[in-house]
């Protein structure tokens, strides 16, 4: 009755709220942990020591190179038709403006198609995108490509409506990408409210002028580490079940939800198994990734280093979509593997979380999944998740200890059983 023992300990026993309390201590102490920042460096040091103190096996740091971008001071002030200071967040890897800023007229568009149609109007302007929110994966392309598309038609900067289904005047940052051969123009996200307002103003034929100042700067790549800790398998130690979350975050709020929760329920999964004195047949490997937010930078270098051993990976797991109350497990794998995972999830009947859905995924594990390794991720209330995603609202206040207990229990049961079954999951 291992599953019951894990659930009992995590949800009703002495380990209750432990993942929440551990997370709160770190993010209250350190705050958010941007790639290349001192905060991230300190957090890695603290976590490295904490995992050793937790008596896990083979705790070590694997060096990687990661991007180093700094936001600096930034501001956007509407000068016409009236003075209005706008809340903005520069987008990751954006260039800065000259010290005096960029002051230009605004062209408001609602889609890339509209931008192409009105390309002749864009020269020398600040393009404001007021794109409708469909869902995150569809709409995020505006944040990622907005600057490049605007630069192609001669714009001097771009301001992107935050990619979120709900807003209380909260900008949501995130990575964006430049393209070789296209001018690199400054780009920032603005609030849904300001994007809507400027759209209304423009539709009345009102001229809008904005002064944008951004000190953003890209520095040479810097050294960081993925953190690894294990419970070594007792029968097939070279075979692995990988349990993970990322330790870096954007420089907003506390980086508690994205992805402190995922990192800490992953640690909690191993702690629960250690507390119960369980030792699976295969190695349970916890990895806390670095520089996920810049596009899975740390995890890709882990893949490069470890892919020679890919046939020994039974399952890769990442929690990077919130640790609110889980509604099921997302899974990618063969029909046989899916049938086995349904059996594993049935062990969570006491928590009434037994669904196995499709789309097991994670920025840091997708490369393994694409190479054929079965992959799993937690699914919870994504609508709520994107309320706070990449915004100053990403703090401990949105986290719920009881929900984290349940998420950790699901993570521990799934990872332990798959690690202890006689056979690896079929490909």
């Amino acid at each position: 009755d291992v599953a019951k023992a894990i659930i009992q300990l995590a949800v009703y026993g002495n380990a209750q709220n432990r993942s929440y309390d551990r997370l709160a201590l770190l993010v209250d102490t350190i705050g958010p942990r941007l790639s290349g920042s001192k905060n991230l460096e300190m957090a890695i040091g603290i976590m490295h020591q904490s995992l050793k103190d937790n008596d896990l096996d083979n705790v070590h740091l694997e060096p990687v190179k990661i991007p180093h971008w700094e936001r600096g001071e930034e501001s956007a002030v509407m000068l016409k038709p009236r003075i209005h200071t706008m809340a903005i967040l520069g987008l990751g890897s954006s260039t800065g403006t000259p010290p005096e800023g960029i002051t230009a007229e605004v062209l408001v568009v609602h889609s890339f198609d509209e931008l192409k149609i009105r390309a002749s109007e864009a020269k020398g302007k600040i393009v404001v995108y007021n794109q409708a929110y469909v869902n995150y994966s569809t709409t995020v392309k505006y944040r990622i490509q907005g600057a490049v598309e605007a630069a192609k038609v001669g714009a001097v900067a771009s301001l992107i409506r935050s990619v979120t289904p709900f807003s209380i005047y909260s900008p949501h940052t995130g990575i964006q990408k430049y393209e070789d051969g296209v001018p690199k123009i400054p780009t920032a996200c603005i609030t849904v409210e300001d994007a809507n307002m400027m759209s209304r103003m423009a539709s009345r034929g009102v001229k809008i002028v904005i002064q944008l100042k951004m000190e953003a700067k890209n520095y040479p790549d810097t050294e960081s580490f993925n953190i690894v800790a294990e419970i070594t398998g007792i029968k097939y130690p070279e075979q692995i079940v990988l349990v993970s979350g990322h330790l870096d975050s954007w420089d907003v709020g506390q980086g508690a939800m994205d992805d402190g929760g995922g990192a800490f329920i992953s640690w909690e999964a191993l702690s629960l198994i250690r507390d119960l004195g369980l030792r699976p047949k295969r190695t349970l490997r916890l990895v806390l990734w670095t520089a996920e937010e810049q596009g899975g930078i740390g995890s890709f270098q882990y893949y490069q280093l470890h892919k020679v051993n890919i046939s020994n990976y039974s399952l890769v797991m990442e929690s990077d979509a919130g640790t609110f109350l889980p509604t099921g497990l997302q899974f990618t794998g063969s029909p046989k593997a899916r049938a086995i995972m349904k059996e594993v999830m049935s062990l969570l009947q006491p928590l009434n979380i037994t669904q196995v859905l499709s789309h097991g995924q994670g920025e840091d594990i997708n490369v393994w999944i694409q190479a054929g390794v079965p992959g799993a991720s937690l699914i919870d209330n994504l609508y709520k998740y994107f309320f706070f995603h990449h915004s100053h609202g990403d703090t401990m206040t949105v986290m719920d200890p009881k929900q984290m207990n349940v998420a950790a229990a699901v993570w521990a049961v799934v990872s332990y059983v798959v690690a202890d079954m006689e056979e690896m999951l079929p490909r």
Partner: peptide, 25 residues
Amino acid sequence: KAIYRHDMVSQRTFQEIQKEIARYG
């Protein structure tokens, strides 16, 4: 060594695997 790899066929029937997993509950 590992009993099952992607290039090998499982040694066990699904019912056996079901029973194995049930023992964890």
